[in-house]
């Protein structure tokens, strides 16, 4: 099926307080496209968690959103340190975030689990010292 809309966002790794701008932007665009509100909620939360992860752990990266007729794909790419143990990282409550991040209300070890919870398919490709690519699909 042909690709309908493609959105690209650079995620600034320096500015923790502005993290979420891309997700809020995506939310606005999906609303303009008339996408179901519950789908919008899933896509924007999954993407926000990904953005936050890139800021906390990877010094930023980029996000591509592909909107097809039957699905939405989110591709998150960074060149951070990579995830040492993906299986552990997927466990609720497991986190390597530093204390200053925890004091902001993040680092609860719920980011990746939330991304899985809100998407129909999620794939993590990560290599230590090279970076991480996460691909998520939400069916429409």
């Amino acid at each position: 099926m042909s690709e309908v809309v493609k959105l690209h966002f650079d995620v600034d790794g320096e500015d923790f307080t502005s993290a979420g701008q891309a997700s809020v932007q995506v939310k606005k665009i999906l609303r303009q496209l008339g996408i179901n509100p519950e789908i919008i909620r899933k896509v924007s939360i999954a993407m926000y968690e990904g953005e936050i992860n890139m800021v906390i752990h990877a010094g930023g990266g980029y996000a591509d959103i592909l909107i097809y007729e039957d699905r939405i794909e989110i591709h998150l790419v960074d060149h951070g340190p990579g995830i040492a143990n993906v299986e552990m990282a997927m466990r609720e409550g497991w986190s390597t975030a530093p204390d200053n991040i925890r004091s902001l209300g993040f680092g609860a070890g719920m980011g990746l689990p939330n991304m899985k919870r809100y998407t129909d398919d999620m794939k993590i490709d990560s290599a230590l010292g090279e970076g991480t690519r996460i691909t998520m699909r939400i069916n429409l």
Partner: peptide, 29 residues
């Protein structure tokens, strides 16, 4: 905040003592 995003439902009243700017993004999303 991630716990809230994972568990809160649309239209809920969200009660919190967290007081930084990320609260606004989470409330929106």
């Amino acid at each position: 905040l991630s716990w809230v995003m994972g568990r809160a439902k649309s239209d809920n009243v969200w009660i919190t003592i967290m007081s930084n700017i990320n609260v606004i993004a989470v409330a929106t999303l």
